[in-house]
């Protein structure tokens, strides 16, 4: 059996099932950095992010023969990594996740950050990305799960072990905070107008 360095994800997976560590290495090289980055945005801790993704790959190897991957390999690994990250958050932050009294002070730094940042870049998406990073931690995690991981409110609630009501409150709060953060944007009214006029139908 020849092993080309450019095997496709399916070929790699097939070779992985047969116990080929070179295939594991290729899958690792392809996905590890982006998975660590994705997990980092939930855990905010570099070392645990690496450990979490390492565990995902360990599981991938150990269960290689019984794996039932319905999504693509990349999507499967991402979902596994995010789930693990959430379990980790659940054990690490039981208490933080339950109390709902986090002050909104995290937003205080935003305007100054904003001004600096706007000197370099005045682009809605960038500003939005920045605003998301500045959201209070729980708020940000719930928003990202809903927006970027495509999880339903119920699924998020189950994963984090909190009520659907709390999830919805966090989402409402997140969008409000994002709107507030964007209000300093010079062209926002224009963008909204144009977007309503031309963008909605797409």
């Amino acid at each position: 059996m020849s092993i080309t360095p450019y095997a496709s994800a399916e070929e790699d997976l097939e070779q992985l099932r047969r116990g080929c560590t070179a295939a594991l290495r290729r899958i690792f090289d392809r996905y590890y950095p982006e998975l660590v980055a994705a997990v980092f945005y939930y855990t905010s801790d570099e070392e645990s992010s690496k450990d979490i993704v390492q565990e995902v790959f360990t599981e991938l190897w150990i269960r290689r023969q019984t794996l039932n991957i319905r999504l693509s390999l990349g999507a499967y690994l991402r979902r596994a990594a995010i789930n693990r990250a959430l379990n980790y958050l659940k054990t690490r932050q039981r208490y933080q996740f339950h109390d709902d009294t986090t002050p909104w002070q995290d937003l205080a730094d935003l305007s100054e950050h904003d001004r600096q940042w706007k000197e370099h870049q005045d682009d809605l998406e960038m500003q939005l990305r920045h605003a998301i990073e500045q959201l209070p931690e729980r708020c940000r995690i719930v928003f990202m799960l809903s927006r970027f991981e495509g999880m339903s409110h119920r699924a998020i609630a189950e994963q984090l072990g909190i009520s659907v009501k709390t999830i919805e409150n966090q989402l409402i709060r997140a969008t409000r905070l994002l709107r507030q953060a964007l209000e300093s944007h010079r062209y926002l009214p224009v963008i909204v107008l144009l977007w309503i006029k031309y963008g909605l139908g797409q």
Partner: peptide
Amino acid sequence: ALYRLIWEKASPPQTTWPEMDLDAEFDR
């Protein structure tokens, strides 16, 4: 419409890790 704009334009944080020693990580 404004909220929908925020939702649709929200893009995930950057997904690349600045520097990583993949050999060492793979050994681990």
